[in-house]
């Protein structure tokens, strides 16, 4: 499903080159749940950005469902994301000017789905936010915002879901609730889940764990 070959990322910082990823090789099968773990600065988020096609690699390649992301331009990758990929972020990333319902409808509308509203309502009910469709993000608690984000991620029925520290901004009880929801929905839809976290308890719930240290895979 996802294949990373000799993935490298270098950035220029304060006049010298900084190597963030030093040649990552990784293969994730369809329907698999994988946790990418590691300390702050180990390169987890950078790896996630590259796998999801949000960023371009300095060297190496990412192939998802037989498409090599490096061969696509920015717009091509955007179209690819619309079709295949969903996200859940640490800081939720809801559009503040849109209601909960409109936020969930957004990726469906981008895909041109005619049933965007029904689909969005369905998923919001699934995350138990049925009565709060018309609320704006600022009127929702952190946990509620993350549930909207999960509804948004699953509503467009992506094949792969990337989650970046999904519980990082939540207290442990709310975080646990969110995780349960995430894994439930994942099972229901058979989605491939790639999760970046430094929460070992969360990582334990995944089928596989990839540990990064200083830009390289330390252990699997």
């Amino acid at each position: 499903m996802i294949k990373a070959e000799n993935l490298q990322k270098r950035v220029a910082m304060a006049g010298r080159e900084l190597e963030i990823l030093k040649g990552i090789n990784l293969e994730i099968k369809s329907g698999e749940t994988v946790a990418v773990v590691g300390a702050s600065g180990s390169g987890k988020s950078t790896l996630l950005g590259l796998l999801a096609g949000l960023d371009e690699a300095s060297a190496g390649r990412v192939v998802i469902a037989d498409t090599e992301l490096g061969q696509l331009d920015e717009d091509g990758r955007a179209a690819f994301r619309a079709d295949h990929i969903g996200f859940v972020f640490q800081s939720f990333q809801l559009l503040p000017a849109l209601t909960a319902l409109e936020n969930v409808m957004l990726p469906l509308e981008l895909k041109g789905r005619r049933d965007a509203r029904q689909q969005a309502e369905h998923f919001l009910q699934r995350v138990e936010l049925g009565p709060r469709l018309d609320h704006y993000p600022r009127q929702l608690s952190g946990g509620e915002q993350q549930r909207v984000a999960i509804a948004r991620a699953f509503a467009s029925e992506p094949k792969i879901l990337f989650a970046d520290e999904p519980t990082g901004n939540l207290d442990s009880r709310t975080g646990e609730h969110i995780i349960n929801l995430l894994f439930e929905l994942n099972r229901e839809h058979g989605t491939t889940l790639v999760l970046v976290t430094h929460d070992l308890k969360l990582a334990q719930r995944c089928q596989r764990r990839v540990q990064l240290e200083d830009g390289a895979v330390l252990a699997e």
Binding site: L54, D75, A78, R81, A82, F87, S156
Partner: peptide, 16 residues
Amino acid sequence: TDYVAIMKSLGASSGA
């Protein structure tokens, strides 16, 4: 800028 980033991550093209 943040809006656009979110929309792009959700698959919006630059033309759109």
